[in-house]
Write a protein that binds this DNA or RNA. Structure first.
Length: 869
RNA sequence: GGGCUCGUGGUCUAGUGGUUAUGACGUGUCCCUUACAAGGACGAGAUCGGCGGUUCGAUUCCGCCCGAGCCCA
């Protein structure tokens, strides 16, 4: 039985370790009914980083969902993934082992990565377990494992065979710092200080006006050698005469055409703009639309190429300086002024990106935008409004998905090329995972040209090529060579029930996962998407390392029980940001304590063994259980729609207010079976209802009071309504009477347990006579059935506007004026006012009740109470 | 620049086309009632960001403005 004070410092670790040892949350090995299977596709955290408060928050929300569904009769798969496949872990490995990846064969280096990441994975495991998250620790995956490599390569091959991947030499977004192509989603905009250079170009053909030059403005004069055209807006009258003419690029000397195109921004600079291959997205569009030359001035590492003549080999930053000063020398530099503008940078390193023409692998996405949008619609979104994020993301797509990365480590493309004809040789599915750098291609001679030498593809897959496969990883997607088809170990969990996700990364994580899984299986990967908000600091600002306002999970959990943190997290409306508030944690502590203390009282009032339901329940008992029934229905539906805060607050107030303050106080001192049954039944239900939120203290209470064979509360069925009938109105009236008497005592500065001599009640509370008497310490309680001996004076009329408004419309002000002047008549149950006759349902007569007899008169809702003390 | 949110007692928050706007924290008064004083009872405290419109009636719907945040360019 619960004794003394609850000590979370010992209880929480005890249950956490029991849950792990007993595999309480294990997903069954045997086959599971798809109708009851419930699976959560948790986005795997990057293990090389540290666990932050946002992880705590997100994990708790996922856990509440998992626990609720587990109790509701679902077989829950709550897996965990460690994302350690990426640049971060490679850097980490190099640091830890003091090695360089270049010094190792790729396969060997990856082995080292896996070893180093183990330690960090263990740390993550410990922390997740120390929060009591109900993860099935037998179902984990590492994105760096060979199994996941295999799935990633299978995915590549499947899409290739479907004709949805292509390799093309085309302008690609390139990071000169990382020396790799990157996809559109890896770029972001950054404010940079720069200079606008006004540069004079000489015309090489004559104009009617005799004008022989014009000025362009650019922030990137080092791209002059890459200039292939000059553009003017069709509406630009001043410069219209230039269209069709040619100009010579200063210093570099190439001649370019002047073309009109409406994509010119007339407001910027002189309104004449140079087009370089490539300075930005528009340059690419122009290059394609006007069939321009290709002049590559900047190479993979950001240095100038031979088209830059004497500047060849200079880094673009250095070249800019030289070129500007040389322009000045030849009087081509008209002006130079400092500006701030936004540039496209690589989100990882902040380096401004270039657009290079390179041979890269792409996944087709632009051709199926409508289909992917439809796929998004098929999922249920919590909250619904977040779907628009997904929609806008798709609407804004301009590039196919570039999936090759020129990095030395990562998951290899399972591809070789014929040295002679560039024929693409794809690995056998049964042989995966392969690394072309170490493994031989599956054929001896090129089927196209018969050549026998092959070049391995050295690029690796974009990390999202893997991260977007988590539903397939979780369901054990694989290729069955003998059957010649893709199979799943656990087909029942696909599509997965819930995808939890922060709203900041809906665009790429979710989008990529949807399209990949959709293409592989023909089905949307998720039944529902649960979007959580960001964790903010106490001042409602986003936490970030640079601001230094991050909350350290270890420090918080040192100070507060995990259950208190869980209570705090459950206070969020799904999709909304949630500020970290210590008072939220303190409120959690208080609730834990209240639950514990109430449990001690219930335990002391009930036998150890379950009490059978008596034939007849006392009215107050039936009332409590019926009210609880209704609460259960509400709380359940709130949890179904992920309205955590509403579920939590509803449960808390009913437990604290109705059960503890109203019911428990009345039932104290009773020793009958009806009380014992009700206490036991209601309390047992409260423990279960609180279990998804307060996972530890409820386990402790359940073990102390109800478990017969060490079974966990988390595997007990979720409470269903008992269907007990009760006179709810009479019960509410009894509670009102008690409330009125409390107010009386408070107003008269009496203690709550002070005695009242005589109390008379006019109201339908006979069934609650003893309850009222005992809780309020009344010597003599008289309950009258008839009318109370009070006089009432009419003090006014109050209109029911929901009736009067629609019925009388613009006449309402007249009615109000007349009522304000007491200019009305009550005729029968009708109100005659302002020349109108209002029916009884349109108004209420306000009365002041007056009592002339002995004692003090109190109104308690519909009941009348008279106290003689 | 485009889009999406959000502005409600001191703080955080619920909520609604109908006239005493929810709750928590804080705060004031009273009560050590043998589960809990880290508790209980009872109060005070809000012109629902600003302006305008629709309406008999707007905190709620619409428009504009101010302020905050996020996503995208």
């Amino acid at each position: 039985m619960p004794r003394g004070d609850y000590n979370p410092d010992t209880a929480e670790p005890k249950w956490q370790s029991t849950w792990v040892t007993d595999q309480t949350y294990a997903y069954p090995d045997e086959s599971v009914d798809p109708d009851t299977a419930f699976s959560i596709d948790t986005p795997p955290p990057t293990v090389s980083g540290s666990l932050h408060w946002g992880h705590v928050y997100g994990s708790i929300l996922q856990d509440i969902v998992a626990r609720y569904h587990r109790m509701s009769g679902n077989e829950v798969l709550f897996p965990f993934g460690y994302d350690d496949n990426g640049i971060a872990s490679e850097r980490l490995t190099e640091r830890e082992l003091d090695i360089r990846h270049q010094d190792y064969e790729r396969r060997e280096f990856q082995k080292r990565c896996r070893e180093v990441c183990r330690t960090y994975e263990d740390e993550f495991t410990e922390k997740m377990q120390a929060m009591g998250i109900s993860i099935d620790w037998e179902n984990t995956y590492r994105t760096i494992s060979p199994e996941v490599q295999r799935i990633s390569q299978l995915s590549f091959i499947d899409l290739y065979e479907q004709g949805r991947e292509y390799r093309q030499k085309a302008p690609a977004i390139w990071c000169p710092e990382c020396e790799t192509a990157i996809s559109q989603v890896e770029t972001e905009d950054a404010e940079h200080d720069s200079h606008f250079h006004d540069i004079e170009f000489a015309l090489t053909t004559e104009t009617e006006s005799g004008r022989d030059s014009f000025v362009i403005s650019t922030t990137r004069p080092e791209l002059l050698p890459a200039c292939v055209a000059v553009f003017v807006h069709p509406d630009d009258e001043e410069n219209a005469e230039l269209v069709g003419k040619t100009a010579e690029i200063p210093i570099f000397g190439q001649t370019v055409s002047i073309i009109e195109d409406e994509r010119v921004d007339m407001e910027t600079g002189s309104g004449i703009v140079m087009c370089c291959t490539f300075g930005d997205q528009t340059d690419i569009e122009w290059y394609q639309a006007h069939n321009l030359d290709l002049r590559i001035a900047i190479d993979e590492s950001g240095h100038l190429t031979d088209v830059a003549g004497e500047y060849e080999g200079l880094h673009s930053d250095a070249a800019r300086g030289s070129i500007v000063s040389d322009l000045d020398d030849v009087d081509a530099l008209v002006d130079k002024r400092a500006i701030t503008h936004t540039v496209n940078v690589h989100e990882r390193c902040g380096t401004g990106v270039e657009f290079l023409v390179t041979k890269q692998w792409y996944i087709d996405v632009l051709d199926k935008k409508d289909e992917y949008l439809q796929a998004g619609r098929e999922m249920e979104w919590f909250p619904e409004k977040m779907f628009t994020r997904y929609k806008h993301w798709i609407d804004g797509l301009q590039w196919d998905w570039l999936i090759s990365r020129q990095r030395s480590s990562g998951i290899p493309f399972p591809v070789w090329y014929c040295e002679e004809c560039d024929y693409e040789v794809i690995a056998e599915k049964s042989a995966l995972p392969v690394d072309p750098l170490s493994d031989e291609p599956p054929i001896d001679a090129c089927p196209e040209c018969g050549h026998t030498e092959f070049i391995p593809e050295s690029d690796v897959l974009d990390t999202w090529a893997t991260s977007s496969l988590t539903p397939l990883i979780n369901s054990g997607w694989d290729w069955d060579d003998s059957a010649g088809e893709f199979t799943m170990d656990r087909p029942e969990i696909y599509p997965m029930s819930v995808r939890p996700q922060g709203h900041d990364i809906i665009s790429f994580w979710l989008f990529h996962t949807v399209i990949k899984c959709y293409e592989h299986t023909g089905e949307v990967p998720f039944d529902s998407v649960m979007i959580n908000g960001m964790v903010l600091d106490e001042n409602r600002e986003k936490m970030s390392k640079s601001k230094g306002n991050v909350v350290d999970p270890d420090a918080v959990l040192e100070k507060y029980p995990v259950d208190a943190a869980r209570y705090w997290a459950a206070g969020s409306a799904i999709g909304d940001d949630l500020p970290y508030q210590e008072k939220g944690l303190r409120a959690g502590e208080k609730l834990i304590r209240k639950l514990w203390n109430a449990s001690k009282l219930v335990d002391s009032m009930t036998p150890d063994e379950p009490v059978a339901r008596p034939d007849e329940l006392r009215a107050i008992d039936a009332w409590l259980l019926a009210a609880l029934d209704e609460e259960i229905e509400t709380i359940t539906s709130r949890l179904e729609t992920r309205e955590f805060s509403k579920a939590r607050d509803r449960l808390r107030s009913f437990f604290w207010g109705t059960f503890c303050d109203d019911y428990l106080e009345m039932v104290k001192g009773r020793e009958d079976d009806s009380a014992a049954y009700t206490l036991q039944t209601a309390h047992n239900r409260f423990v279960r209802l609180f279990a998804p939120i307060l996972a530890h203290v409820t386990e402790e209470l359940y073990a102390d009071m109800y478990a017969t064979d060490d079974e966990s509360v988390h595997l007990q069925p979720w409470p269903q309504p008992l269907g007990i009938s009760a006179d709810r109105a009479a019960g509410a009236m009894a509670i009102n009477v008690v409330g009125a008497l409390r107010k009386y005592k408070s107003a008269n500065q009496l203690s709550l347990n002070s005695e009242l001599q005589t109390v008379e009640v006019y109201g339908d509370v006979e069934a609650f006579e003893d309850d009222i008497t005992s809780v309020m310490h009344i010597n003599e309680l008289v309950i009258h059935e008839g009318e109370a001996p009070i006089e009432s004076a009419i003090t006014g009329i109050s209109l029911d506007y929901s009736v009067v408004g629609p019925q009388y419309g613009s006449q309402v002000p007249d009615i109000e004026t007349a009522l304000g002047q007491d200019d009305y008549k009550l005729v029968g149950d009708e109100l005659h006012v302002a020349g109108l006759e209002l029916a009884a349902d349109a108004f209420e007569v306000e009365k002041e009740r007056q009592y002339a007899g002995e004692g003090e008169f109190i109104e308690a809702g519909d009941a009348i109470v008279i106290v003689n003390n």
